[in-house]
Design a protein around this nucleic acid. Structure first.
Length: 469
RNA sequence: CGGGAAGUAGCGCAGCUUGGUUAGCGCGCCUGGUUUGGGACCAGGAGGCCGCGGGUUCGAAUCCCGCCUUCCCGACCA
């Protein structure tokens, strides 16, 4: 019997589909306070895999992990004018503690440029202390008016990097290095999500930055999702927090700082970039479970074969779990599909009689019979194939969702379903206002060949516009 | 934060208009049995401060007020 769908089909109602998947795949729940999120073990396991892949790259880029406090004096925020202006609407402020009204309110960090700036000033004495390359894994709070699990929650988890450099060039180069070697590398190689790399137009810049670089993902409904950002902060924060160093000539000089972050939003991006009507599709390299070994029936011969197979896969370094064969077969398949486990190994009497197992790919439902001898090597290579196939199909969708155009009017129409690419000179100014009035924004600026511009004033830039999450 | 809709068992819902036995149904869950190659079946069972607080009333899931939460559309954002 053909199963009726468990999830709302994407084409019928994409946001509903998203919520269904998050709930049914046991990724997350809403917390009791509006906008808060409970991340369930399966969702958290994915996040942990994301974390370790990003952390590895951050360390390779030379930054060190540290931890700064959740509570920030309100006065710190005010030290950088644009920064405080950008963040004050979404701040959570503690006014009472220990049963008393506080003399100075305490802000729950929305990001940590300010506290870290304060300590950079203290720690940096000479050019020999530079560059100072820090990162922290933390939770932050930004009061959200329209929350969505993983995509926008009032409290979320992220990594925020903060660096100080002696020169503008060094700072700009480092922010770009993070953008490419940490974020883009992670997105392509691990999350299998192709993005548009570019810089934000001035209107979309981080509050207090002189340049913001972005990785804009294309979701399956054609909307954009900012998946990671890297900022050049110039000397704005250095001035506000007096981050000076003594240069080789013995003179005092202001540092140039950067900051960059990626959050639990990546989990939402993964869901919306790869998922289909049957549920999640988790790329093998981030999948907490890469292979599920499914006993077709609950009998001794089948189960002991499954046991053997699990051990073979574990020995080959595959993250594998076993489904004991209780309950109906179809039901169990559906459940694993919703969770997006890349490979399913079905083991039943019919397979065993022929000395094989059936291996099924989650992304294209392709089934192959594999001898048990060849199982581990086939699984490993199929996982790698799937990883690159997922990237390739996401890339094909990205390109199919993008249309070149020349006018703001056309761009508006295209942006109802996807991305429009057009000259920045056409949009810059009034065009941007027109787009915004219909919830369409400039996601990023690029050179015509798709590479990163060095600034928004470079001539001949194109922009990508879309609706966004 | 503005406009709309909604909150009844884990999930989806009926009941509310017209207040009145013990608040129902489907799925899921538990027990036993039969099953098992794409959401199985039979029998039995557990599970409810009807979102929270107040009011009206002899009596409130039902009527009134306030708050909280969720969803959709905007403005703000990783």
């Amino acid at each position: 019997m053909a199963s009726q769908s468990v999830l709302t089909p994407q084409a019928e109602d994409f946001p509903r589909w998203y919520q269904d998947v998050v709930a049914k795949a046991e990724m997350a729940d809403n917390g009791p306070v509006r906008g808060t999120m409970v991340i369930r073990p399966y969702g958290y396991a994915i996040w942990e895999n994301i974390q370790s892949a990003i952390d590895l790259r951050i360390k390779a880029a030379g930054a060190q992990n540290a931890y700064f406090p959740l509570f920030i004096p309100e006065s710190y925020l005010s030290k950088e004018a644009e920064h405080v202006e950008g963040f004050s609407p979404e701040l959570a402020v503690v006014t009472h503690a220990g049963g008393e009204l506080l003399a100075e309110p305490i802000v729950v960090r929305p990001t940590s440029e300010t506290v870290i700036g304060e300590f950079m000033a203290k720690w940096i004495q000479s050019y020999r202390d530079l560059p100072l390359l820090l990162n922290q894994w933390a939770n932050v709070v930004r009061w959200e008016l329209r929350p969505r699990l993983f995509l926008r929650s009032s409290e979320f988890l992220w990594q925020e990097g903060h660096t100080a450099h002696a020169t503008y060039d060094d700072a700009a180069a480092y922010a770009l290095k993070i953008h490419l070697e940490v974020y883009n590398s992670f997105l392509e190689e691990i999350l299998a999500v192709p993005t548009y790399l570019g810089i934000k137009p001035p209107s979309e810049r981080f509050a207090g930055a002189i340049n913001t670089m972005t990785c804009e993902g294309v979701m399956r409904d054609g909307k954009a999702l900012q998946m990671a950002t890297s900022h050049e902060l110039g000397q704005n924060f250095a001035k506000a927090f007096e981050i000076y160093f003594q240069n080789e000539e013995g003179q005092a000089a202001l540092c140039h700082t950067t900051s960059w972050g990626a959050s639990t939003r990546l989990v939402g991006g993964l869901i919306m970039a790869h998922g289909d009507d049957h549920g999640l599709i988790v790329p093998p390299r981030v999948a907490p479970i890469q292979v599920v070994v499914l006993a077709v029936r609950d009998d001794e011969e089948v189960l002991s074969a499954c046991d053997r197979i699990v051990k073979l896969l574990q020995a080959a370094g595959v993250r594998v779990t076993m489904d004991q064969g209780r309950g109906s077969f179809g039901r169990r398949i559906t459940d694993w599909e919703i969770k997006g486990v890349p490979l399913r190994v079905e083991v039943g009497p019919r397979d065993l009689a022929q000395g094989v197992v059936t291996m099924v790919r989650r992304d294209n439902d392709e089934k192959v019979a594999i001898t048990i001898d060849a199982l581990a090597s086939t699984a490993s290579s199929l996982l790698e194939t799937m990883q690159s196939d997922l990237y390739a199909s996401a890339l094909a969708r990205r390109d199919a969702a993008t249309t070149d155009t020349t006018t703001v009017g056309e761009a508006l129409e295209i942006a109802q379903q996807g991305f429009a690419r057009l000259p920045w000179s056409v949009v810059n100014g009034e065009g941007e206002t027109t787009l915004k009035s219909q919830a369409v924004t400039v996601r990023c600026l690029q050179r015509p060949d798709g590479t990163m511009p060095s600034s928004d004033s470079e001539p001949g830039l194109v922009c990508l516009v879309a609706k966004s999450y």
